[in-house]
């Protein structure tokens, strides 16, 4: 298999599988309960009982990271799905119809781009209050223009191809052509982009939770674990290490997977790089 010889694809797929497996296992098993408080055991360094040590409430850090993986995946998947579905629809519509509609979609994406994601997330949490759902909405909205631009650009080049003309001659309308011919041809680059946006969503969620605007206690999230760890840097420095490694490995895995998928989907790009 060609894919198995592609370095970044293999490493990326392995790291992503590790992330998903951790989240799945955490549904049925964690070494300790991630919310069980045991003050006698607080701020312990890593040991045989508590592999990554314990936090200031004596909760098991390893278990919290396992459950945090679930949180990251849920936020990432939903946020990317929101952005991808509405963004791709907008982009395809813009490419199919052209004219003022296309102009409006493009101006809208330019504008959303000019607005830093963290700012819009902060605006939304200022309006709706902090929480996991609101951070998902905020990250999702930021994803819309990314997919809208990408889908429009790719779809426009498909629309100039001869088989579109043939489909037109066969009497198909804009909608049928978009669904049957354009979408399948732009799908691979959208999947690649979705992987990368997934990684960005994990980073964004971690940032928002670090600020206290994302997932709320007692539900564990990697970003908030880092926030709490900062208070105890002098007493328990390892607390600040593990959640960060979890975030970095997940993001690295998804980015490598995205790079690998892109190369496999379009070998010309791989050779040019």
């Amino acid at each position: 298999m060609k894919a198995l010889r592609h370095g970044s694809f293999v490493i990326g797929a392995a790291l992503t599988a590790l992330l998903v497996a951790t989240a799945l296992v955490s549904l049925v098993w964690t070494p300790w309960s991630p919310t069980a408080i045991d003050v006698m055991q607080k701020l312990k360094p890593p040991s045989a009982q508590h592999w990554f040590g314990t936090d200031h409430f004596g909760r098991d850090v390893f278990s919290m990271i396992m459950v945090g993986a679930r949180n990251s995946i849920v936020v990432g998947v939903v946020a990317v799905a929101i952005g991808c579905l509405s963004g791709v629809a907008l982009g395809l519509l813009a490419a199919a119809r052209g004219g003022w509609l296309e102009e409006a979609v493009m101006r809208f994406s330019d504008f959303t781009f000019a607005f830093p994601a963290v700012l819009s997330a902060i605006l939304i949490t200022a309006l709706l209050g902090p929480g996991a759902v609101n951070s998902i909405i905020a990250i999702g909205i930021f994803n819309v223009p990314v997919f809208a631009r990408l889908a429009r650009g790719a779809a426009k080049s498909v629309w100039t191809r001869d088989f579109i003309l043939a489909a037109r001659a066969a009497g198909k309308g804009d909608l049928a052509i978009t669904v049957e011919h354009v979408l399948p041809n732009v799908l691979s680059i959208i999947i690649v982009q979705a992987t990368i946006q997934f990684a960005l969503a994990i980073l964004a969620e971690a940032g928002l939770s670090y600020l206290g605007l994302g997932t709320q206690p007692p539900y564990p999230s990697w970003g908030r674990m880092l926030n709490e760890a900062q208070t105890f840097l002098y007493l328990a420095p390892t607390l600040a290490i593990f959640p960060g490694i979890a975030i970095a490995l997940s993001v690295l895995g998804l980015n490598l997977l995205g790079d690998g998928l892109r190369d496999l989907a379009d070998p010309r790009l791989a050779r040019r790089r």
């Binding site: 940032g207 970003g223 760890a229 960060g244 970095a248 993001v251």
Partner: peptide
């Protein structure tokens, strides 16, 4: 690759 994957606030905590 590593630089893109590391959240800036975690890097900041590591620097501290």
């Amino acid at each position: 690759q590593i630089g893109i994957a590391v959240p800036n606030f975690w890097f900041a905590i590591l620097l501290i």
